[in-house]
Every structure is written in structure tokens, then in C-alpha cells.
Design a binder for these strands. Structure first.
Lengths: 329, 329
DNA sequence: ATGAAAGCGCTAACAC
DNA sequence: GTGTTAGCGCTTTCAT
């Protein structure tokens, strides 16, 4: 910067002023031009580290995740966060902990040492977490997870609304016997989607029939068997709501194997909106989207709105899960 | 740090020495303990920004990608890069450009201002690129892409070997009429895999039959049609090598629709190893893996080995694509 | 309209 | 074994 100043025949202060467009001390246009010319001539680039030291702003956000970075389920979360950060000239420091506590702890330390101005703690699937306690002075927001006592702000999918939306879509198409193949491992998604399913049924005056609801592990194979069983029922369902798209994949196989057509004979709706599956299946799968992009985006947005030094209110934000209509209902 | 020093009754230098475990000036164990005690008492944490300014090391690597971050194809690349960086205490600054030149240019500037010590430029699929010219003094390695004149080091999948491996696996199972449903849009993967397919055939003394090779867009639907056509051939193939897993998904549908069984009647091998598809398909798909994790890992590894200030030799590294055996052949 | 000077929090010669 | 001191490259107050 001194070199630039010397070449432009001004003080280093002036260079700083023109680079940062400081308005309080108006520099003449002619001087500005000289300075910029010198900058380009020298190929000088400001040193963000030095600037950060001085301003006490790293312009950096930390993103700690368990597996989310590597899971196709949720990569859009990173995209949302990164694009939002980008729009306010911040950058994202990411580390994936593979679920290991020690890595998580160290990652947090590293980020705090780098003076990140906010932290996002994200998980691959919606569940309860216990993040490291010592966050120092930086605000943290949870994405796709929450702490037991709700003492940290969180952005989580509105599972109930998602289950409701899926079921309602089916009901609106005239289906009255709607099966639900649920996940079997207890998790918020399981309870929430089931609750949404029941509420939709109730709201439309349809009975809740326990024989139409089953629980299996969420993979194509178990869903295949479950679908088969469902379709062998005396009064078989005309529509199946699958806990996720992987299961819908198995359901498709079972339905086709029985010579039935989708959606003519049996309608199917999934959950997750995994492009790779939903769009490639035949017919393309109507499904409910997990709002990963939106959660990532809002996470950094929340971190922005924070008047320096303050802490975010521990609000649990339920983000809606929109229906993505394709051709399976 | 001054506060810590005062509390421990030593100079600030001593604190620095114990924090950084400086061996050149051995501090007595008793002093070390006092210093650490003070550090914990005060909850002090070193400021990596100040340290970076002084040492001129940011301990940071930049990762610029077009879509790779958001594509399930390649998220493992980030994992590989991040884990490797982690093991040498570096962190990753990531930005996804969505393919926009201006974002790319700015991202590069931002990273250079933050004094990243190395750059990784990655793309979603294997193709030629023109990265921004002004890299400043930092080394860059390309991942999953290359520049026309090969003037930048690159890590790319060995498509030829991948195609060869897939075909060979089929040949070893006794297949002699092996179809290949290739991609239609010209790209290295298309040419490489075809080349591998031909070489394997030749090496095993099998004739190359052009009627067994077709080109379609790489989606399930077109692969469905292509497979159908292939299976209606007078002398139909007993095995199909699909350009990618999405296409294998379509091939599965077509084979099953014709009442044929996999792999008994027709064997299938894919490419990409998209867990989501390959493992969920029934039967699970044998496929060739794109070495994303490995490319990410090696990229940061290469950046490490660089004696400060030097530039990486522009070697094009072809990373092998291993066969992932499941149950479709 | 521009410049002098005082740090931001740390590292690393060098001195004792 | 430990302390003194001089920066690293910037921003920003206060003078001029």
C-alpha cells in the first residue's frame, strides 16, 4: 500500500480512502484516478487479513455440519448459505465433522480463532443435537436440528405441514384410501409427517385407518415389500404417501411388478425431492421438498441482522415444505 | 494475550512461546502451567487473524466450483478436500459460482485478498475450462477439468480405464454381446469411456459391433427407449454398459418391462456410483465410481507439497475409476 | 483535500 | 529461561 501511495504521489492514508471509498474525506477525482492507476500498475491487492485485524471484522461465517455437506439430501443448504453470505460479501468456512465430537470441538475452536462472525450448525437429517457448549461471543443458528431445551435459534422443516400437504394433494385428486409408509426409526420427521397425514384426513372428513399405515426402514427394498403388502389388502389403497423418495422408488417397483399403473391405478407421493430420484423415475415423482436451500439462506440472513454483540432470540423457525408436482398423482 | 501474560506473571512473549510450543526457547514446565492456567482462567483464544498477518500464512485454501458443491455427483470431492485440509490444520473457503464468470472472478479476488495459500478449481462434470487468468502468486489445481493447453495441473477421472473396467467386468462374466449406451453430447467422458469399451473388447478378442452402441441424452427416459431398442435386436445383447447410473435406472425399467431379469437375462453396469440410485435400485447396481473424493483429497495434498513461492508442474493426473460391485452383473 | 500517527493482536529476532 | 522490541498491512482519528 505504501508502494502504491508512493507511485501515486500521495500518502498511504489516501490510498486507503480511495480503496474503501471513504466519503467522510472526499478525495478529488483526479487523485482517485492516480491512485487506481498506481494500484493496477503494481497489481496490488488489499490484504484482508490486515484489514480484518484492524477492523475486527473477519467477514467470515463458519458452517459446521455432520454429514450434510456430503449428502445429496442437503447440499442445497450449503448453496443457500453460501449465496446469502456472498450477497453481503462474507465467505463461508466449512467443515464436515463426520459426526465426530472431537472434530466438531476442534472445528469450533479453529473457527473462533479465525474470528468468524457467526456459526451455522447443520445436520444431515432433522434431529436433536448437543452442540459444543463454549461458543465464545459468536451467535449460532441451528439448521435442520434443535437442542432439547430450545435455547438456541433453529431452522427446521415443518414436517407436519409437509405431511399435511402431501396427503391433501392426494385427497384433492379424489383419493379416499390413502396409505402412508412411514419410517420406523423414531425421529421428528416420522412423528411430524404422520401428524400432518392424520390432520389432513381429519380436516377432509376421512377416517384414519391404521391398516393403511405401516412403518419400515427408509430404503427402497423395505418399501417394496410394504407396498406389496398394502396392495394385497382386501380393500386396497388407491394412493400411497411414502416417507421419502427412496421409498417411493421401491413402491414404484412393487406397483409396476403387480402390473398396476402410476398414477392411474395407484398414485404415489414422496418426500425430500431428491432430483436424482424424483425426476428420473417414470413417471416423474410428485414429492414434498425439504427446504434446505431456504434454511441455509435464512440461517446466514439471521446472522446478519444481529446488532453487534447481541445474541439471537432462540426462536424455532419452522420452514414450510412445498409440494413439487410432477406426474405421479 | 497481554492480560494472560500479566495474570501468569510473565511477558507476552512467553505466552506466545508456550501457546506455539516453541522449542528453540525452552520454557520451564512450571511457567507453562502457569500460562495455561491463565489462558483458561481468562478464556483467551489466539487470534488467527493477527497471527496470519504476522506469519504471512492464512492456513486457508480456496475452493471455487461451478456446481460441484450442489451436485450429488461430486459432493464427495469437497469432503476429500476438506478432510485433507483438516489434517494439516488448514481450512477451506468455498464458493459456488453457478457457472457465472463475474462471480467466479470476484470469488477469486476475495480469496486472493484473504491470502489463501492455494486454490482448487472444480467443475461438476469433466470438461475443458478457462479459469480466470490473474491468479496472483497462489498455486491452483484443477479438479475434474482441464485447460486446453494443459498449462495448469489437473486431476481428472481416467475415463478410458473406467470404460475398460466396466466392459472387462462384463466380459469376465462370460458376456460376449455387450451393448454400450453412451452419452450424446460431446465430452471427454463420452470419448474416453467408448475408447475403454473398445479396448476391452479388442483385448479379449471380441468384435466391435456398432449396432450395439448407441448415443442418447443421459437421462432415464432416453435410456429406457434405447434399452428397449437394443433388446429388440435380432441377436440381442446379454449385457448393457450404461454411460451413467441415471441411464441404468431407465435401462432397469425397460428390462423389467420386457419381463427380463437382471442380471440373469441381461446384466447392467453403470457409471458414477451415485449411492442414491445404485444402492437403491433392485437389484443393486454394479457401477464404476467417479473418484471425486480422491481428486479432492489429492488436490489439497498437491497444494501442500509446494515449497513456498513455487509453482506446481502442469501434470495431468488421471485418477482411476474403481468398479463397485453390487448385484447387477 | 490530504497526511501523520497510533494502534489492531500477534511472532520472532535478539538481548540479557 | 524470559523479556524487549520491531514490525506484519491495514484503518481511522485528528491535524493541517
Amino acid at each position: 500500500m505504501y508502494d502504491v501511495a508512493r507511485l501515486a504521489g500521495v500518502s498511504q492514508t489516501t490510498v486507503s480512502f480511495v480503496v474503501n471509498n471513504v466519503t467522510s474525506a472526499a478525495i478529488s477525482q483526479e487523485t482517485r484516478d492516480r491512485v487506481w492507476a498506481a494500484i493496477h500498475a503494481l497489481g496490488w491487492r488489499p490484504n484482508a487479513i490486515a484489514r480484518g485485524l484492524r477492523t475486527r471484522h473477519s467477514q467470515t461465517l463458519g458452517l459446521i455440519s455432520d454429514e450434510v455437506v456430503t449428502s445429496p439430501y442437503a447440499v442445497r443448504m450449503i448453496l443457500g448459505a453460501q449465496e446469502a453470505a456472498w450477497s453481503v460479501r462474507q465467505m463461508l468456512l466449512v467443515v464436515n465433522t463426520s459426526g465426530q465430537q472431537d472434530i466438531e470441538q476442534m472445528a469450533l475452536q479453529f473457527m473462533l480463532e479465525r474470528r468468524v462472525e457467526g456459526l451455522i450448525y447443520a445436520t444431515m437429517y432433522h434431529h436433536e443435537v448437543v452442540p459444543p457448549p463454549d461458543l465464545g461471543p459468536v451467535p449460532m443458528v441451528l439448521v435442520n436440528c434443535f437442542v432439547a431445551d430450545r435455547s438456541l435459534p433453529a431452522l427446521i422443516p415443518d414436517e407436519v405441514q409437509g405431511g399435511y400437504t402431501a396427503t391433501e394433494a392426494l385427497i384433492r385428486r379424489g383419493h379416499r384410501r390413502i396409505a402412508f409408509i412411514n419410517e420406523v426409526i423414531p425421529m421428528p420427521a416420522l412423528f411430524g409427517r404422520l401428524e400432518g397425514y392424520r390432520r389432513a384426513l381429519a380436516d377432509y372428513g376421512l377416517p384414519f385407518d391404521p391398516t393403511l399405515v405401516c412403518s419400515v426402514h427408509s430404503n427402497a427394498q423395505e418399501a417394496f415389500a410394504a407396498t406389496r403388502a398394502l396392495l394385497e389388502l382386501a380393500e386396497r389403497p388407491t394412493a400411497i404417501f411414502c416417507f421419502n423418495d427412496k421409498m417411493a422408488m421401491g413402491a414404484y417397483d412393487a406397483i409396476k411388478r403387480l402390473g398396476l399403473r402410476i398414477p392411474h391405478d395407484v398414485a404415489v407421493v414422496g418426500f425430500d425431492n431428491l432430483e436424482l430420484i424424483a425426476a428420473q423415475l417414470y413417471p416423474p415423482l410428485t414429492t414434498v421438498e425439504l427446504p434446505h436451500y431456504e434454511m441455509g439462506r435464512r440461517a446466514v440472513e439471521m446472522l446478519q441482522t444481529l446488532p453487534a454483540g447481541e445474541t439471537l432470540p432462540p426462536i424455532q423457525h419452522y420452514i414450510p415444505c412445498p409440494l413439487i408436482e410432477r406426474a405421479s398423482i
